[in-house]
């Protein structure tokens, strides 16, 4: 199972804000169980997508050297359900960023509709303790998240010469 709850970044301003989208598909497993005959995206997964958007925004500030972990969600309010076929837009804005962690304000919208407002507190896992527990391996920004990080970097710094597709051949 792939634990990635955003599809792509559409905007990324390092240290300030990030916007990502998530297209909801009826093929996603959670819709089958939540709930049978009434498929709505679990609120916790909506928050996960928002936390991935915000977590990458916070991690990028230190070039992903810190282990950024979701420590606390002091506030979250949900305005309406989200269901298959809809596109969610996740927006994360950094409210506060310090060596110990960061606070991000997040909003989730579907078109013009507000879906969720939340505040997310990220902690930088203590360097020493983190190394004792996990070694130098950064378990937060690893594996498949690397693809998203690559996208975040692309959106953050568009190349002056975007790669061109070769001309179509008959």
């Amino acid at each position: 199972m792939r634990w990635i709850w955003i599809d792509r970044f559409t905007a990324f301003e390092p240290g300030k804000s990030a916007t990502a989208v998530k297209c909801l598909s009826a093929a996603e497993d959670h819709f089958a169980e939540h709930f049978p005959g009434f498929p709505v995206m679990p609120a916790a997964l909506i928050l996960e997508g928002l936390a991935q958007t915000g977590g990458i925004l916070v991690g990028e500030v230190n070039q992903f050297r810190e282990k950024v972990v979701l420590a606390k969600i002091p506030f979250a309010k949900f305005h309406r359900d989200a269901t298959a076929g809809e596109v969610l837009t996740y927006r994360a804005d950094v409210l506060d960023l310090k060596p110990e962690g960061a606070i991000v304000k997040g909003t989730v919208t579907c078109g013009a509709d507000p879906v969720c407002d939340a505040e997310i507190f990220f902690a930088h896992l203590d360097q020493n303790r983190g190394r004792q527990m996990f070694g130098d391996f950064n378990f937060v920004f690893s594996g498949e998240l690397a693809n998203l990080l690559g996208m975040a970097k692309l959106v953050a710094s568009p190349s002056p010469d975007p790669p061109q597709l070769p001309p179509a051949t008959p």
């Binding site: 420590a71 606390k72 002091p74 506060d96 310090k98 110990e100 962690g101 606070i103 507190f121 902690a123």
Partner: peptide, 9 residues
Amino acid sequence: SIDFLDIVF
């Protein structure tokens, strides 16, 4: 403990 960090922020 994590609340203390949040409170300080």
